[in-house]
């Protein structure tokens, strides 16, 4: 059984869709092929992968309450391709959005479902994840923590000869569990989707989010954009100004 998982984020690096695709693969059996859809040049290669596949999983960001335009272009081509080649795949979807409510992905889910009807594909449902950017940040923080753990372990061996300094590992464990907790909703549904993919069954539309209270999330989101805008300089270039068109 072959599953093609398509990361549809247009970003080159640090995309949330890539993180969720990685997690979904942990829960998916059989042959797995990961693809990246960033522009037209990727279409032919991905369509070729679909020929002998049973399942396709779209991992995509929510853009303006819907599907990003470059993904729509791919879907149009895929519709024609599947009809011409009599391909009837099972289609699942992992959508993530910036805001905290995963339910904001509902219009996107419906659009993918309507696409399946038009293309003669079998809609298997999907997971909509709120706070995708922030969950992706938890991954980056986790990677930094592993780096620090390794560094501190090496320092500990050099300075005291102890390979497993207890406090360091307890700290690491606590932090890792906290980060894991934030991700639990998404992980639960990835497990369900893995089972649905294996059986070729209907998962339904499931919505979840980063597991933190909304008011803390909004605070973090604002701080996040302030820091990035400071680094990138936008804050000093009329950050919130009502700018007029140049012509």
């Amino acid at each position: 059984m072959k599953t093609v998982l398509i990361n549809c984020s247009p970003k080159k690096r640090f995309c949330a869709s890539q993180y969720f695709l990685f997690l979904q693969k942990l829960f998916t059996g059989g042959k797995k092929v990961s693809e990246k859809l960033r522009n037209q040049a990727d279409h032919a290669r991905i369509l070729d992968q679909l020929k002998d596949a049973q399942t396709v999983v779209f991992c995509l960001p929510l853009y303006v309450d819907g599907v990003p335009s470059h993904v729509l272009r791919f879907m149009e081509e895929m519709e024609t391709f599947c009809r011409q080649n009599d391909i009837h795949l099972n289609v699942y979807c992992i959508a993530n959005n910036g805001f905290i409510e995963g339910r904001q992905n509902e219009p996107l889910m419906q659009i993918i479902e309507n696409f399946c009807s038009r293309a003669g594909l079998i809609w298997g449902g999907g997971v909509g994840i709120g706070g995708g950017v922030m969950l992706n940040v938890t991954r980056i923080v986790f990677e930094i923590q592993i780096g620090l753990l390794v560094l501190n372990t090496v320092l500990s061996v050099i300075q005291t000869g102890v390979l497993f300094p207890k406090d360091l590992w307890i700290d690491f464990g606590e932090n890792a569990l906290t980060l894991l907790f934030f991700n639990l909703g998404a992980l639960f549904y990835f497990a369900l989707m893995g089972a649905a993919i294996r059986k070729g069954s209907y998962l339904g539309k499931k919505y979840t989010r980063i597991l933190i209270p909304s008011f803390i999330f909004i605070l973090f989101a604002d701080i996040f954009f302030i820091i990035i805008s400071l680094f990138e300089g936008g804050i000093f270039r009329g950050w919130l100004a009502k700018k007029e068109p140049a012509n």
Partner: peptide, 27 residues
């Protein structure tokens, strides 16, 4: 198409880094 960089918020507000007809369409 949009590259998802958020530069129109964080780097050069209300302007896209891609210099085509849509560069200032948000305005």
């Amino acid at each position: 198409h949009c590259q998802g960089c958020f530069g129109c918020w964080t780097k050069h507000p209300a302007e896209c880094f891609m210099k085509d007809k849509l560069q200032q369409v948000c305005r």
